[in-house]
Computed example of a mutant assay.
Amino acid sequence: MDNYIKDRKVDSNEWMPFTGLEDGDSLPTGDIYVPIEEWLNARETLLTRNGRLGVALRNTDDPAIIKDDLDRLDLVVLEFPKMADGRAFTQARLLRERYGFKGEIRATGDVLYDQLFYMQRCGINGFELRDDQNASHSLRAFDEMTVTYQPASDEELPLWRRQK
């Protein structure tokens, strides 16, 4: 995918979504992520395969549902169904700050230039941009603001408590 940014660089997306694991199916190789329902129904089977593993959450899912599994996961995919729906921002902060997730948190869906800086502040480090967005151009979004006031995943202290 040429509209993918990871860790503030245009990158290739090596992860594949996977659904529909039935009894007796062979497990796919490579790096896959599964919907949360698939994870909850086939967790132990999925953990026996080779390759990295991730889980996709809807923006209505509570990240606490996977908190005990985060050390087994390399990726958590968060859904941004429309620009005006910010629930996945909260999910990202919970994953990073409350549950200590160190892997990739990826934003998918209606991911736009205007949101990238704020998504990064919440702990998101992978971005599947909407098709009409340009990844190379979008890299500028991360440096548009140089001063932040509130604490977030990328800065523990508010501006007034930071002393130089």
Rank of each mutant, 00 (worst) to 15 (best):
G109W: 07
T48R: 09
S12A: 15
E38G: 11
L129Y: 10
G123S: 10
G24I: 00
L21A: 00
R58G: 11
F101S: 09
T108S: 06
Q133F: 12
D74L: 01
A56R: 14
F80R: 09
P28Q: 05
G86F: 13
G103H: 11
F18E: 02
T29P: 12
I32Y: 04
L94N: 02
G20K: 04
V10N: 08
Q120F: 15
I36Q: 02
T45G: 03
E38A: 10
E37V: 06
N50C: 04
R106G: 00
D69Y: 07
R106D: 00
E38H: 05
D110I: 05
R8F: 11
D110W: 08
D74E: 07
L78I: 01
Q133K: 05
R106P: 03
Q133I: 04
P81C: 04
E104Y: 14
R8L: 08
W15V: 03
V55E: 02
K6W: 15
Y113S: 08
L129Q: 07
K67D: 01
L47C: 03
D132L: 10
N41E: 14
L27P: 00
W15Q: 06
F18P: 08
R52Q: 13
Q120T: 08
D69P: 01
D23I: 11
L40F: 06
G126D: 05
T45Y: 01
D62K: 13
Y33I: 07
K6G: 01
D23M: 10
T108E: 12
V76Q: 01
M119R: 03
L70D: 00
L46W: 12
P81I: 11
R52G: 10
I124G: 01
Q120C: 13
I66V: 11
L129E: 03
G126V: 02
G86S: 12
L95W: 07
G54S: 04
P35L: 09
W15C: 03
P35N: 14
K67S: 06
T19K: 14
R52S: 13
T90A: 14
Y113F: 15
D69V: 05
E104T: 13
R43S: 09
G109T: 00
F89H: 12
F80W: 13
R106H: 08
D61P: 12
F127M: 06
A84C: 08
L75N: 05
G126W: 09
R106L: 08
L70P: 03
T19G: 10
D62A: 13
R58S: 14
D61Y: 06
P28H: 11
A84K: 11
E97C: 10
E37T: 11
Y99I: 00
A88F: 15
